[in-house]
């Protein structure tokens, strides 16, 4: 039981740490770092699904019959690109918010919005 799933459980713990950072942190950059941990951990989850015990990397090799599953690898390649694209856009928003408000702390942003 534990040996079957310990891998997934650690990955879930990683996801949740990332998720936690996104929710509780007031700093906009730190939130994104948390979001990145969350996403990267989901990637690890997928890649774990693809693992075949005793298999090798899915590149055709003489004399090898057991390969890891290439499909989750492809999905995660796409997801990594989507992730970095999201981060780039988010960071450009952070830069603009800093310019417009002079802060990137959530609480101060909300205060400054109430002022006007």
């Amino acid at each position: 039981m534990v040996t079957d799933f310990y891998n997934y459980w650690i990955v879930i713990a990683l996801m949740m740490i990332g998720f936690f950072i996104v929710i509780v942190q007031g700093n906009l950059v730190k939130k994104l770092i948390g979001l990145n941990i969350f996403q990267t951990s989901v990637f690890i989850f997928y890649i774990s699904i693809a693992k075949v015990e005793g298999g090798t990397a899915p590149i055709l090799t003489e004399g090898v019959v057991l390969y890891s599953n290439p499909l989750p690898h492809v999905l995660i390649l796409t997801a990594i690109v989507v992730g970095i694209a999201t981060m780039a856009l988010a960071l450009s928003l952070v830069v603009r918010i800093h310019k417009a408000y002079g802060t990137i702390e959530e609480e101060e942003l909300q205060e400054r919005d109430h002022e006007c």
């Binding site: 998720f19 969350f38 996403q39 989901v42 989507v82 918010i97 408000y101």
Partner: peptide
């Protein structure tokens, strides 16, 4: 300028939503 802050918040929520969907797809697969 509040558009920027609104867009950021939507980005965070939307990305969490998309990541949840990704987790769901992973289970199904």
């Amino acid at each position: 300028r509040r558009a920027l802050w609104a867009a950021y918040q939507y980005l965070i929520v939307g990305t969490i939503g998309a990541t949840f969907i990704l987790v769901g797809i992973g289970f199904l697969y």
